[in-house]
Design a binder for these strands. Structure first.
Lengths: 203, 203, 203, 203
DNA sequence: AATGAATGAGGGTTCATTCAT
DNA sequence: AATGAATGAACCCTCATTCAT
């Protein structure tokens, strides 16, 4: 149930691409209108201004990512390893599948004016928090042996996020293969040791 | 022994901070002049324009990082683990010690105009290459067990680079401690197994 | 039936006067906007820039002159003397009636950037060519006795063009009188001898 | 006995070329310094500014032309035809031999600021006056039959001046030939009829 | 619902010029 | 005699935005 009239999609899409390619500061609102194939006035008819476009794009970008994470975590059980796998997989798929959304969300937060900044940073924080919850629980339960949970978390997030910068769909690695690798890397980073394995080691 | 007359340092320094805080596109050359405490004309007396400032800053940023890496690798031996430790330590220390230089080098390459872009991207690539050489050698020698050397490399680089975004010198972790953790993380990511350890396992 | 919205005329008119009085290089686009009574932005809304204004003015100036010549030559017959009279009269009237247009067309061609220069010079050449055709035909037919048709042509053009520099409508000579004099001068320069006269001389 | 130190010549020469090629308004003082191969400061050491350069160049240009005319008229007798021949020849030679000086003198008077303008225009007038004196005397003596001495004078001057715009030393016509043609054209324009010829006609 | 016209502020850059040395 | 450094004003132009229609 979109609250906005038609024409919106094209404008947002164009703005996203421009912001992503040139950065918010270097993008002119005329570039966006032209790319969207609408008049400058039409753009202002739909949106209050450049900043509102950015807010809309950033919010939507975060929401989409959270939705993807939520969905993945829903089907996962309680097991920290399973949950970490789920969120890493969701993140990797989001980075490869939505590189433009990803790059904006990851770089243009700083272009927000004071009015929107705080709320956005707090919302953004939820992403980090999800990883934190999972990893901390794994450490608590003794399945993640990393001695530095905070740094492990940052490392996992950073490596997943970086995908948006280099991944090309026509590259040598399939998306599924990439997911598998990053899940494996993430488990390595947190030094995952399944209970069964540990028991067997003890034996 | 400055090759340029006085005033230069202040200008570059101011430009670095502005570019880092607002991004190249959103930074006005007047902002830079004001922050440097020089007149607009003085800035143009020393630099041909905004783009030349960016080029100078990016080049210097890369050079400084390469110098740090080179120095660290010189004192390291041939052992891939030792070399990986050295370059990760150098990178972490560069990110914590030069967060402004780091953030510009890591984000403003895209603001280069075509004229400078290619050369810069090629130069930038050398950083990646150094990691690649070390990790590939470790894999070859059988001390890095990671099945995905390329992704491990990207992960290590990404996690080190991300430090520039969140590290604060007055935070809870000392620089030395951080270096230790990231070296450890990096070795984990490449799945380092020292020969001695492996031999003992086989026994 | 103006193809451009209102405001255009005033801008072009103002630009013409400024270019004519100060020269293109010395004219600031603010001078033009102010003289036209529009804002600087309005000017840029209608024209892409200073150079485009010049191009528009030069093109229009040449076109207007050619139109005047064409009209004059249409009503003239085939006789070279009659045609020379027609084009000289048209030129004189254009120089006295449109001194501003004339002075720009005669002096600011050099201010065109490479992109427009060649086309303009070629177009400009048509004026010279019209005189050449007429004079050469007169020489061929034996009614113009000048031994130097090229120099005679240049002389006629130069003397007509110069009118733009000194003629003042409130001067001692009426436009019609001036036309008569320059037509007479031109015929003198080409050493016009009507066939009838020559026959009688021969007799 | 030059009153100015060395280095002057190069600066003036450079300024002349730049003014001639781009016009005073479009020429930057840096262009001049660069072309002269001197520093910007050196230029200001010798000249008070851009306007002073123009004044010097215009004055020198007029003086040189007047000197050439004077020299030519000295060797001429009292006969108006002979004197017209002399001044036309001198003018043609000046236009072909000094195209840069000529073009500046002929076009950049308007770039003078009020302070210098009046004096210059008055000085410039002397050129016109010389032609006027000669032609009027010829008319008075009955050897120039033109009914429009003023227009004849303007025509002669205009056609001579125009040479600076199109003459190229490597063109098809030698300078001497050109002089001959323009002298002949000038005599035609004033409708010169030698007394002898008239007497013979009467006979 | 949609737009062409217009604007003031500010963009990067170049200007002619001055001054301490 | 000569210059490197520095400046304030002005340059052309683009910006995000508004408003009458």
């Amino acid at each position: 149930m979109p609250t906005r009239p038609a024409g919106h999609k094209a404008i947002i899409e164009a703005a996203r691409k421009e912001f992503s390619e040139q950065g918010y500061g270097a993008t002119s609102i005329r570039d966006i209108a032209q790319r969207a194939g609408v008049s400058l006035s039409a753009l202002y008819y739909y949106y209050k201004g450049k900043q509102e476009l950015l807010v809309a794009i950033l919010d939507e970008g975060l929401d989409a990512y959270f939705a993807a994470c939520d969905k993945a975590l829903e089907s996962a059980g309680d097991d920290p390893a399973e949950r970490l796998e789920a969120i890493v997989a969701a993140t990797v798929r989001f980075r490869t599948g939505h590189p433009v959304k990803s790059s904006i969300v990851l770089t243009e937060g700083r272009s927000l004016e004071a009015e929107h900044l705080e709320r956005y940073r707090k919302n953004e924080e939820r992403a980090s928090q999800q990883f934190r919850d999972i990893i901390d629980k794994g450490v608590e339960e003794g399945v993640f042996l990393t001695p530095y949970p905070d740094d492990a978390r940052r490392a996992v997030i950073a490596m997943c996020n970086a995908i948006a910068q280099w991944y090309r769909p026509d590259g040598p690695v399939t998306e599924d293969e990439l997911v598998e690798r990053y899940v494996s890397l993430a488990l390595t980073v947190v030094e995952y040791r399944p209970r069964a394995a540990r028991r067997s080691l003890r034996a």
